[in-house]
Design a protein around this nucleic acid. Structure first.
Lengths: 200, 200
DNA sequence: TAAATTAGTGCACTGAGTGCAATATTTCAA
DNA sequence: TTGAAATATTGCACTCAGTGCACTAATTTA
């Protein structure tokens, strides 16, 4: 081999790069079409054509149509776990989660969130999966909390903290969408966690 | 008409009675087949045949296959609203909900709950809709709470109480299924609500 | 008992999702 | 550099959920 391999130089093979690019094209095509014509009215044939792949290939990238939208949501779990790992044990678990959530809330684009929320709301099945994903996030958060406070006697308490925190997050996001993004998510989060303290 | 009409005597027309009976036959046939062969492996054709109706008629009773299972869950909202209406204003909202939940928890058959939970867990889509139904219950509970405490300044607090209560219910049912029904739901509910008090 | 409702059915269709086998592309080792 | 192994892409045929429509059967009401 006389010439250097540029794909190797960047630490990513051609196969990987193509795969990542195709994945992105499908995601873009899907969201664009969903926004333009609605979720149900957009067929997989249309998405595949827009993304420049065959219908059959779509299923090598996503298990189902709704995964296009759900895959975006899935990132929250990783973000939250990473943010929580930076917190210390010398505080109440719920305060650690609150700080982690407020910190990562800045990473989301408010305008896109409002639009995607409207798309998801147009399909019962998608909405159900979105709401179910909160349960998944709760489990992920619980695992992250246990990593910080592994003592057996804290388990029930941490389960509850995970439930309360994800609940506060959900209420905040619901309010955010209900009031059309008027107040930033961080503000709504702080309000929800404050209310948690005074109400219980 | 010389003879009395027995269907009218019982306050229910023939049409209504037949409809109720068919609905029950479909529900029974569906759950029986789901338990025997699994959710995904059971086709609507099989359910319709078992219930003695045509496939097309099924859709006059249910919007989709998963509704057979979800319709059972839907009753909780009504039960909870009714139970809460019996509570008084001279207590904390969360205590009122706790008492109402414990009271209606006796109405469910533990064995059936365990089996149906296993069936629902076998399909991602059904599980998602089940988890989403908790969000619906939360909204229903919030409305019921507002009927008791309509003061505007209580809204946020009541939203939170609804979230906490349904969350505690969900954690209790999750624990119930996780530990295979070893402890009764009422006990798990009380434990969850107690933990709520001490943890937050 | 006839007319108006409502329930049940068959048929043809769309669209999501899967299994399989064939082809094209990328990787890796000699 | 080349050929073999691994992986990606595709087409095809299929199953099944769900819908629209037009028609028939049963029930209700006047």
């Amino acid at each position: 081999m006389t010439h250097g391999d540029p794909s190797r130089a960047s630490g990513e093979g051609l196969r990987e790069r193509k795969r990542r690019e195709t994945l992105q094209r499908i995601t873009d095509a899907g969201t664009r079409l969903f926004i333009a014509h609605g979720y149900e009215a957009t067929t997989l044939d249309a998405i595949a054509a827009e993304a420049g792949i065959s219908r059959r290939t779509f299923f090598h990238y996503f298990k189902s149509k709704d995964e296009i939208l759900l895959a975006m949501q899935a990132g929250l779990g990783d973000l939250l776990t990473a943010a929580l790992a930076q917190e210390t044990r010398d505080q109440r678990p719920i305060d650690a989660v609150r700080k982690a959530l407020v910190r990562i809330s800045g990473a989301y684009d408010p305008g896109e969130m409002l639009i995607l929320d409207r798309v998801m709301r147009s399909s019962e099945a998608v909405l159900a999966r979105k709401q179910a994903s909160y349960v998944q996030h709760e489990a992920t958060l619980f695992a992250a909390l246990r990593a910080l406070w592994p003592e057996a006697e804290r388990e029930t308490g941490l389960r509850l903290v995970a439930m309360l925190s994800i609940g506060a997050l959900r209420l905040s996001l619901e309010a955010f969408n209900r009031e059309d993004g008027r107040r930033p998510i961080a503000a709504l989060l702080n309000e929800a966690f404050d209310a948690l303290e005074t109400e219980v």
